[in-house]
């Protein structure tokens, strides 16, 4: 390969010449197609949705109401319940999932590990499972006389079956377990691919200095993976704040509103009830504001200045 020839000369040259990117037009050409397409298919509809959020009414009978939709949010008990649930899911889910995914990717990145391919595929599989199958199975596992209750009762951990889907607390737990099950493998992929870009020799040097596995993990792996950790934490933030599939298909938002999320409420307002697309848009922008807020915090925490 040509690249190997190029690589040979790097060592000598890169020390002499500091890398200076060429400024100017060429950089913009690289990003041009993306900018155009995103403006067309995201920002233009977003702008229209923003305009819609100042209107209200059934279906096409819309009237301009100014900021009324936004003030209505604060006195809408269903929205507040959904907001509460969504934030709970977000606060528990994101750290939990990221730590698990990091743990698996480091385990699976071990050169000496046997059956790596099998383990990797197995742990990734939940991410490709169809939502229909996955929700049927979770409902079945956690039904009153389902496998989970049977196992727990046989182990004498509980004496009576837990009514998973009918109890506000346990229903939330089921949703958290379900999301974790489905998305850990997905996040693991990002770490695994990034770990390949970390030079093995750094670890070797650290081991020679007598660094323990824990020290290697915190002193080398985490700092090296920082850009990707930031990426997954922001995408997971978006994913959990827009959480829809799991509550919609597994608990239906119930019992009561115990697992209702903001996205499911948007769906209800647009399609399940007499449609009010104006108010639904306002609720959507409430999500946007939350995501922007949490993302800025994460960018700041990651110190992504340079």
């Amino acid at each position: 390969m040509e690249t190997t020839n190029l690589n040979k000369s790097i060592k000598q040259k890169s020390e002499k010449y500091k890398f200076k990117p060429k400024k100017g037009l060429i950089g913009w050409i690289f990003i041009l197609i993306s900018v155009i397409l995103i403006c067309l298919f995201y920002f233009y509809p977003m702008l229209q949705a923003l305009l819609l959020s100042f209107q209200s009414g059934a279906g096409v009978n819309l009237q301009f109401v100014g900021l009324e939709n936004y003030t209505r949010l604060f006195s809408d008990p269903t929205f507040l319940a959904a907001l509460f649930n969504t934030v709970i899911f977000f606060l528990i889910q994101v750290p939990f999932m990221i730590i698990l995914a990091l743990m698996f990717s480091v385990m699976l990145n071990n050169k000496k590990l046997k059956f790596k391919g099998l383990f990797r595929t197995a742990i990734f599989l939940p991410a490709v499972t169809s939502l229909v199958a996955y929700s049927v199975i979770f409902k079945y596992l956690f039904s009153n006389n389902g496998i989970i209750n049977t196992i727990l009762m046989n182990l004498s951990i509980i004496s009576e079956p837990i009514l998973w889907m009918s109890d506000p607390f346990w229903a939330k737990i089921v949703i958290i377990l379900a999301i974790t099950w489905r998305w850990v493998g997905y996040n693991m992929i990002f770490y695994l691919s990034a770990l390949q870009n970390v030079d093995e020799s750094i670890y070797e040097a650290a081991r020679m200095d007598g660094a323990s596995a824990f020290q290697q993990f915190f002193k080398i792996t985490i700092p090296m993976l920082k850009p990707i950790i930031l990426f997954t934490s922001i995408t997971s933030t978006i994913g959990t704040l827009q959480l829809f599939d799991e509550p919609m298909n597994i608990t239906g938002g119930g019992p009561g509103n115990a697992t209702l999320t903001i996205s499911q409420y948007i769906y209800d307002l647009s399609f399940e009830y007499t449609p009010d697309f104006g108010y639904a848009s306002a609720v959507s922008f409430a999500i946007v504001v939350m995501i922007v807020f949490f993302s800025i915090i994460q960018f700041k925490l990651a110190g992504d200045k340079k």
Partner: peptide
């Protein structure tokens, strides 16, 4: 009427 399912969801919480 217009609001069967919207009221359904409110009453489900009431029932709890």
């Amino acid at each position: 009427g217009l609001h069967t399912y919207a009221i359904d969801d409110i009453l489900i919480v009431s029932m709890q």
